[in-house]
Design a protein around this nucleic acid. Structure first.
Length: 567
RNA sequence: GCGCGGGUAGUCUAGCCUGGUAGGACAACGCCCUUCCGAGGCGUUAGCCCGGGUUCAAAUCCCGGCCCGCGCACCA
């Protein structure tokens, strides 16, 4: 275990889940500090992706009925039969492999695959034999209700809950595009072999924004905000670019302005929570790498001790999901978009003659008439063909009239496209810890210090009596009480020497320590010590809450708030 | 899933080969001492991953499981 991971465990950032029962890979417990840190990161995410957008946040179930993922394509894309070679160890999707090698399309079930392997004596490309085929399903399944119950799945992404609620959300936004809907919550993937600490979990935390736009308007009114920001890009051909976002769009490296906007916004967010910009890049998915629903995807990747890892994916999901849910649910999920000016069109319209249709076609007459009205004709034709209940019927001219009409069209129904920035909160939390873990030397001794941004530090302030005896203790406790009443999360510690306590708080990332010393009793001042520089300034106790609030929400220097006491 | 290596107090680790009382360091807690950066003294707490087998006796040997690390594969 790395020195950092050892510290994170020991000091209460992360723990192995189910530890007393032997543990289970792919699950992690957030201890007091880790939980506080992730929540602070979530709040900053909300500020950027909800408050500063035309967006809202919702919360939908993690257990979903099976229909959701049948529609979304997750069931078919997740439930595969896999085969593994016993000599080279390679794993293949059975149906793909059989199609490629034998040219046969099969029903991907374990039995069929087994039969095929026996029948054709199927071998691995290396010549080795296959083990028993096994089911390979990345979604956790469950039964809803007692007895046989209804098949359900734990969601593998938070996004579907938003698509399901689309009609309600459209109503909420008064039918006006663009709008965004966010969700922060748990998602589940039954990974085959989760590893690397919190990097690949079976239960993890996502923050996703689904930003719905008109398909022809993939722009953002605040694009200028990031247009001149330079980013490190790696396109799908592995070609690096270091250009401004405006240039990237103009040169076609990034497909559209909206994608570029969210890349800029993502970068801003990541820097604010303390990701190291020199270890950040945006990489475009290769054609064979994209999920089934995306036409384009850019990942934010960071360099960590595990190499470059993906922490954010920004995907253009187009109208894939809404269309799928329209098909499977039968609900109309389109948006009516008004034209700026109504369009006048001349049309030739068919007017059915029911008096004649009725006696001849009887029960089918009504349906035929309906189909006839839907038809558009270019010219005065003699007959048309309609399809009723799978039967093609030719209707001759005596049964209908053709009228020329002029119609005003005020708008059209479209299926919006969705751009999805999707954040892996566990990985981001871990990255922030790794990028900010540092060692330096104070008075000849090495110290470990977590240089977290002040606004995300789990314990922002600690109050310490210089000596662990009265009257220092009482005074320090009094100050703790005052700060807590002011809403500042404050810790108290009088154990061990003062230096030892400073180191403890340096290690967990507490940016400011308040020390009650002898002078406190002469002039009602205390010292504020800065974690990063170990400098101290003297501040009046009564001013402490406001000074700390200012310090914790900015990067201002403590020297702006008081006389240097020691340095 | 496969292969290799590993799992001993909160943390790091010695002991395992060659079976027989589990040792250290740091941390934590209490008291004493101490006017500012892991000081010192005394004391305390706390451990062989789980299950089975071999044996008079298992941290140690054998089998299975779980977990961790690395490589392969997987990561819609």
């Amino acid at each position: 275990m790395s020195e950092l991971m050892e510290m994170l465990t020991r000091r209460g950032y992360f723990w192995q889940s189910f530890e007393i029962y032997g543990g289970m890979a792919g699950f992690v417990d957030y201890g007091p500090l880790g939980n506080a840190l992730r929540r602070k990161i979530e709040d900053i995410w909300r500020k950027h992706f909800v408050i500063r957008e035309r967006a809202v946040e919702i919360d939908t179930p993690t257990v979903c009925v099976e229909e959701v993922f049948i529609a979304s394509g997750h069931v078919s894309c997740f439930t595969d039969v896999a085969i593994e070679c016993e000599s080279c160890g390679r794993v293949f999707r059975a149906d793909h492999y059989i199609k490629e090698v034998l040219g046969i399309e099969i029903e991907p079930t374990i039995e069929t695959v087994k039969e095929i392997i026996d029948e054709y004596d199927l071998k691995c490309v290396c010549g080795g034999r296959f083990r028993e085929p096994f089911l390979f399903n990345l979604m956790f399944s469950t039964k809803i209700g007692p007895g046989k119950g209804k098949m359900g799945y734990l969601r593998p992404e938070t996004a579907q809950g938003i698509f399901i609620d689309f009609r309600r959300l459209l109503e909420y936004f008064r039918h006006k595009l663009p709008f965004g809907v966010a969700q922060i919550g748990r998602a589940y993937r039954n990974e085959i072999s989760p590893r690397q600490g919190v990097v690949r979990l079976r239960e993890f935390n996502q923050a996703e924004l689904e930003y719905f736009v008109h398909p022809k308007e993939k722009r953002h009114e605040n694009f200028e905000r990031y247009a001149n920001v330079k980013v490190k890009l790696l396109d799908k051909n592995d070609k690096p670019h270091e250009v401004t976002l405006r240039e990237a769009v103009e040169r076609g490296i990034i497909c559209h302005e909206l994608m570029a906007y969210f890349i800029g916004k993502t970068r801003e967010f990541l820097l604010e929570v303390g990701v190291d910009e020199s270890k950040l890049r945006f990489r475009q998915h290769k054609d064979d790498e994209r999920a089934h629903y995306a036409i384009d995807c850019w990942d934010a990747e960071v360099l960590t001790s595990y190499g470059w890892i993906e922490i954010v994916g920004i995907a253009d999901r187009t109208d894939y999901d809404l269309k799928k849910h329209m098909e499977h649910s039968g609900e109309d999920l389109r948006v009516f978009v008004q034209f700026e000016r109504p369009i006048r069109v001349k049309k030739r319209k068919i007017v059915p003659n029911m008096k004649k249709l009725g006696p001849i076609y009887r029960a089918k007459a009504k349906e035929i008439a309906k189909k006839l009205e839907e038809l558009e004709v270019d010219d005065y034709v003699d007959s048309v063909t309609v399809e009723v209940d799978g039967e093609k019927i030719e209707i001759s001219r005596e049964f209908f009239e053709i009228e020329e009409v002029e119609e005003e069209i005020h708008g059209e129904k479209i299926v919006p496209h969705v751009i999805e920035p999707s954040f892996g909160l566990d990985r981001i939390t871990f990255t922030v810890l790794e990028h900010n873990f540092d060692k330096d030397v104070v008075e000849g001794e090495e110290r470990r210090v977590l240089r977290l941004k002040r606004w995300i530090a789990p314990i922002p302030v600690a109050v310490l009596p210089l000596l662990s005896r009265e009257p220092f203790i009482s005074k320090a406790k009094e100050i703790v009480e005052m700060l807590r009443n002011e809403g500042i999360y404050t810790e108290y510690d009088d154990s061990g020497s003062i230096g030892r306590r400073y180191r403890r708080f340096d290690e967990i990332g507490t940016p400011f320590c308040i020390t009650v010393d002898h002078q406190t009793f002469e002039d009602s001042t205390v010292t504020i010590r800065d974690r990063d520089t170990t400098k101290q300034v003297r501040v009046k106790i009564e001013e402490l809450p406001n000074v700390l609030k200012e310090l914790l929400s900015s990067e201002r220097d403590i020297e702006e708030f008081g006389e240097i006491f020691r340095s």
